[in-house]
């Protein structure tokens, strides 16, 4: 099971990102553990400079703005 964290302080883009990831994961029939990280210190430790950022299993895969649907599909493709 993938552990996915969305880093961001509750702006519209962060909420949309979470929704998009959930949608795509459901479409691929994959169970994920989705966590929303709003704490500034935690975000800083991941080295993300522009939110929303996306971390999958400890690796930063996206930062800055909402990821495109294609990009999110890509995270689930090989599984």
């Amino acid at each position: 099971m993938k552990q996915i964290k969305v880093l961001g302080r509750g702006c519209a883009n962060c909420r949309n990102t979470i929704q998009l990831i959930q949608e795509v994961a459901t479409a691929h029939g994959e169970a994920i553990e989705l966590e929303k990280v709003e704490d500034i210190q935690a975000i800083a430790r991941h080295g993300v400079m522009s939110t929303p950022g996306v971390v999958i299993d400890g690796t930063v895969v996206h930062a800055g703005g909402m990821p495109s649907r294609d990009k999110v599909e890509g995270w689930f493709a090989g599984a």
Partner: peptide, 8 residues
């Protein structure tokens, strides 16, 4: 965006 001023 001001929401990412601090991480930046």
């Amino acid at each position: 965006c001001s929401c990412s001023a601090v991480p930046l």
